[in-house]
Design a protein around this nucleic acid. Structure first.
Lengths: 340, 340
DNA sequence: TTGTAGGCGTTATCAC
DNA sequence: GTGATAACGCCTACAA
């Protein structure tokens, strides 16, 4: 049984569809009497306005798209919540899309979201080459990038101060006397990886520590990658006295590797991880981490997007907002290396 | 500049809109020549079909709604991924909604999703009284409940075997010699809480252990609640030798309480938690947990929903699918209580 | 204070 | 093989 339409309500109330529409949207005066009849008719017919028809007419879907790599990643989890809260407060809904870092999925989702007439898109770009994306930006489609900078596309972006935060993390290790500091790097080709490595390098050079290529291992931003990378690092002789894992998943991989090697943290080796965990202060080791303001990242991006949506044709202006990630020092790494 | 429409393409290719439509949808034969011209016109105009207009006409939005309490909760995180993967494989998109367990937000989202003509809804019901929800179910709107059973509404549901799994968890503790076993319970009024408590009670009675009301404390399904509840339990004299935390967030709260009380786990007290953590085997204590097949929960619900969507009018039939949660025994609790 | 009519961009029916 | 035309449900000039 097809639901009641605005015409059904009109007929039932003995008025025109126009009047019903105005009652629904409070868009012009309707006498108390007729208004009451309309309201009553809507109730009796259990009327629900058809938002699709409305969208077609109004050219706004009250929906925004959010494209991330994987909602299972705790990092995105809080970010998504930030976006949804802001969106909800503005009466917009969220279509969630997972790319798994696949450029192909990214393009498909972009295309679908566009076809669904979403009012705007927030995305963490994979970094792959993307003609369609470039076109969208060029026609002024409201879009905000998050967590990473796109390659050569001018668009508003929200990130954290990756370099500075990484630098702080590594400085923390050097200040404890560490010199041989291994680093597990993220996916190549995304800006956050590059920036975090810059911070690592800067901290070392500040302290007059020579770079050792063998201490830099790729972890592909994933748990398994972090595990493998740590295994490589741990097999070095002499092995590093500390490891800097440049994201949350890789940090877990590193810790698993330590366990499998029978190594204790921080007794045998110190670890600092980028990204904090809600449970970090309740489970051992109480890891020192770089905490990103993840929720704010999402909320900020959403607010920025809404600004763009209002001023559709003010293109060209591509702000970059940088939020502050900060080091949280916990007891576990406050231990000097057993060897030097 | 409004995007090109099907009419623009038709004009550009010198054919009718009908033909363009048929080319797009491959819905009837079009001669190679005209087809080529149409395709070329679409390319030149950078044409993207308007999915909103299509939805209005076809009466399907190719979108489903997912209503949960909070995407920040790691439990829902993997579940959402399961739903999205299945949805995506069927060409559907996902609108994500967070209720924070507020009946009011739940109703608002239900109404919006209905108005947006989503093809179906998957939800973890708050348990509040909900007339609108009941109406939706009654008119045969495709819907699947997840994680919890609704109160007295006949609708397909996907859950885990909460009672059995809880019973196993507590049996594990009794088999280690524990008798005074505290339990931190979830929100009152949701089925999973009730079922998990039944499992707790059954395990105790099987072992001839008398129930002690003081050992049952409400943790409201949240971290803070788990913390407070654990504090209460730890202040009992004699204090329990083990604690069963009935969900992931409360488990974290319990562990924080132990830390703040300077108590070690498992030396001073044993803990078993409902819900596993990806990092559980890498950080201390290596907690024994009940692992729910969370991704499968979401995927199963989505598959069930798609079945319902196909056979819209086969109402009445309200399957309940029960997946298996299983105990993962790790070293930490394999320690007999220091006292009896 | 209220109503009529046209159109948003598609797809489906029928006709040629 | 292809096209006109109506309709999906709503909003909004314009008119009365």
């Amino acid at each position: 049984m097809g639901s009641a339409t605005i015409k059904d309500v009109a007929k039932h109330a003995g008025v025109s569809a126009t009047t019903v529409s105005h009652v629904i949207n409070k868009s012009r005066f309707v006498s108390p009497g007729t208004k009451a009849r309309v309201v009553e008719a809507m109730r009796e017919l259990n009327y629900q306005p058809n938002a699709v028809a409305r969208s077609l007419r109004m050219k706004t879907s009250n929906t925004i798209g959010l494209i991330i790599s994987d909602i299972s990643n705790p990092f995105f989890t809080d970010l998504v919540r930030g976006v949804e809260d802001v969106a909800n407060s503005k009466g917009k809904n969220l279509i969630l899309c997972n790319t798994d870092e696949k450029t192909e999925k990214e393009e498909t989702y972009l295309r679908i979201l566009r076809q669904k007439q979403v009012d705007g898109i927030i995305m963490a770009p994979t970094g792959g080459p993307l003609e369609f994306l470039r076109q969208l930006v060029e026609v002024g489609f409201p879009m905000v990038f998050i967590d990473r900078l796109p390659d050569g596309i001018q668009v508003p972006t929200v990130t954290v101060n990756n370099e500075k935060a990484s630098c702080d993390a590594v400085r923390h290790l050097t200040s404890l006397g560490h010199v041989r500091i291994g680093v597990v790097t993220g996916m190549t080709g995304i800006s956050s990886t590059v920036e975090r490595m810059k911070g690592y390098e800067r901290a070392l050079s500040e302290n007059g520590i020579e770079m050792d290529e063998r201490l830099i291992v790729e972890g592909w931003s994933r748990v398994e990658g972090g595990y493998d990378a740590a295994m490589r690092l741990l097999s070095l002789k002499p092995r590093p006295t500390a490891i800097f894992a440049t994201n949350n998943l890789m940090t877990i991989g590193v810790m698993r590797a330590l366990r499998d090697c029978g190594l204790g943290c921080p007794e045998d080796i110190s670890v600092v991880g980028f990204d904090d965990f809600a449970w970090a202060s309740a489970f051992h080791p109480y890891l020192t981490t770089v905490a990103q303001p993840v929720y704010e990242l999402g909320a900020t991006a959403a607010n920025l997007l809404f600004k763009r949506m209002k001023a559709r044709r003010i293109s060209g202006n591509s702000a970059r907002v940088v939020l502050e990630a900060r080091l949280i020092v916990r007891e576990s790494t406050a231990v000097p290396p057993s060897e030097t």
